[in-house]
Design a protein around this nucleic acid. Structure first.
Lengths: 210, 210
DNA sequence: ACCCTTGCACGTACGGTGTACGTGCGTCAA
DNA sequence: TTGACGCACGTACACCGTACGTGCAAGGGT
């Protein structure tokens, strides 16, 4: 076993790997050390504490986003592409998503998506305040969508379809929910996300036109 | 000291109180027991485990929402009112917000807002699938907004205004971010939320009209 | 009046957690 | 050669969730 030297990137990579395999709850300094075949405290030579390590995880995942921005394209296409790129996180690192969105980053990795989004919005003709507003709107939507997608926030699926389908929620108390139960239990995240993005782009376009 | 008997509601209330005073990280079974002047294991006579206790916290906060729904009002007003009511969580229980939105509830408390929202959307003329789509859109937006508001997700404030204002982010690398830094550092959550709600309602109205 | 069940508060104990601290070894600079 | 330094490591501490056993008080059946 060629004992490659310990390093921050290697530790972060091990953490991401562990999160994706066993979930964020499985992450502990001891566990990561074991995964790397290393003593627990050796980690602290490269990472100040667990919190910083998780920040590293968020940055790493975030910087893995493939932004293929075409500055000549229409701004609606560029916004669409950026939103989709962000959603890739949920595909490539589903169980790390919660870590990414629930962490306040002041590093380059966290700023790059913001910079790109602001650039395309300004390019679309929005002034500063409007661009920031639109960006915040999109971020809220995307964060909320990703959380739903990775199962943190409810789908809302009152009846988890594993059970006897519906019949678990009282139709008298919740007529709409029970009537729409089949629709609520299933969720095509891709379609849902696309629908939301289109709705937002459309709304923004209207807002820009006036 | 009149030693009122221990009970689930009293434990949940103590937990909420503790969260609001010292943050969600301060919550431990030992701490709550101490707060109630009670042995740790006594809690387990009323609550199966910590997870269930936090579910209780979420339900309690959620059921504290004041929904004043007027069935005769225009659906846009009803949607607005419901969105605002939900946002009250962030005002009344700011530090519990994360607990509320990050927990999957299958109880009455969690279903009631869904039922109400679906009812008003159906009343507005949307068919089942559309109503569910709109609801999910709103939930994503609201969850994302609340997370930003309570400081979980970034504002995005690359320069935390406590430092030397701007000048911390390289204008060459991030021209837009540094140019808009003043706007990014401050965030009127109320205005931001209202803007988003209006944008969504408007978009949905357009969608409904076609 | 008796017993006996039941409910509930409590203490102890176990295996986990993050991390402060001291120790020893390898590799370079002087 | 010697000194400093970087880094892997073990130990130790305070804290966590909770399984388990114990004892006390109230209530119901006989």
């Amino acid at each position: 076993m060629t004992t490659e030297p310990l390093s921050r990137p290697r530790i972060v990579a091990a953490a991401i790997d562990l999160i994706e395999r066993e979930g964020a709850d499985a992450v502990s300094m001891r566990r990561i050390a074991a995964e790397l075949g290393v003593g627990v405290m050796s980690l602290y030579n490269h990472v100040p504490n667990k919190d910083a390590l998780l920040n590293g995880v968020a940055e790493s995942v975030l910087s893995g986003i493939e932004f293929t921005d075409d500055p000549d394209a229409h701004w609606t296409d560029r916004v669409r592409a950026q939103a989709r790129a962000f959603r890739q996180i949920a595909h490539h690192h589903p169980r790390s998503t919660m870590v990414v969105v629930s962490r306040q980053l002041h590093s380059h990795a966290g700023l790059l998506p913001v910079e790109r989004a602001l650039a395309t919005l300004r390019g679309a003709g929005f002034d500063g305040p409007d661009a920031v507003r639109m960006l915040r709107m999109f971020i809220a939507f995307i964060v909320g969508s990703l959380l739903r997608e990775v199962g943190v926030t409810p789908t809302f699926a009152p009846v988890h379809s594993r059970t006897v389908e519906a019949a678990e929620v009282d139709p008298a108390l919740f007529p709409e929910v029970s009537a729409l139960a089949p629709l609520l239990t299933e969720c095509d995240h891709e379609a849902e996300f696309e629908f939301g993005v289109e709705l937002l782009i459309q709304a923004i376009a209207v807002h820009a036109g006036q």
